[in-house]
Design a binder for these strands. Structure first.
Lengths: 118, 118
DNA sequence: CAATTATTTGAACATCCGTTCATGTGATAT
DNA sequence: ATATCACATGAACGGATGTTCAAATAATTG
């Protein structure tokens, strides 16, 4: 029933290794949340929006105009970014201004850039 | 035709801001590659595989058994991870051993974890 | 050689995702 | 209140994605 894990590293059965792997594995909920977070970064439109917000707080229509996309499309994606707590917003009259939520965004995108450029 | 970008920050039209945003924006190819990289992290199976490889180099059948999934499913995902240059492999007889390609993987996943845990 | 084990591959299937379009909501101004 | 502007939302469409299944490749063993 329980098969052995055979690594050349040890040379003999290592149920211990398998246990260590499983004990270091985050629980189901964290794995799900982590994957959901990275999914948010996995779209060029959302990354573009984040790059815009790197420079300045901005309202939806300005982002849409800069990226040459419809307000609706931008609004849909801002909702995704907000749910992932990557951006915040505040209302000022008719307009709603979006900005980066924290610096994890820059760090994560920066690390990603490092990887693809090496 | 060219609308003005209206930020409260400046108080007046800022074509300069728009130009700065667009000049800081990575080119199309990098944006695409970056999004593709994060897509790879955006799946619990692939993240699970990476966590397994955090502990030790391992062959396909062992990963499959530890994660309780079919070899085929794992193999398909390993191919995605390899294309993204997140894992390497080497053959040893019938088995093919996979390992992490570099430390960007740990850093990126670590930053993601930091974000969801705050 | 044939048989077995480890892995890869391609097609098929269901599901998920991003944009568009139409509509709804909220704030301002006349 | 009516009109307009800024934004959000829901349905719908096409395209991408992960797993399964069956079949192919590759290396070892008898």
């Amino acid at each position: 029933m329980t098969e052995t894990v055979t690594t050349p590293e040890t040379g003999f059965d290592s149920q211990a290794l398998r246990n260590r792997v499983l004990s270091e594995m985050p629980d189901e909920e964290r794995l799900y949340d982590l994957a959901e977070l990275f999914k948010v970064f996995g779209d060029t439109t959302r990354i573009r929006i984040l790059y815009v917000l790197f420079e300045a707080e901005m309202c939806v229509c300005d982002i849409a105009e800069i990226l040459n996309m419809t307000q609706s499309a931008i609004s849909h994606q801002l909702r995704v970014l907000k749910q992932a707590r990557l951006v915040r917003n505040r209302r000022d009259g008719k307009q709603i201004y979006y900005s980066l939520a924290d610096d994890h965004v820059r760090t994560i995108i920066g690390q990603g850039m490092d990887h693809i450029e090496e």
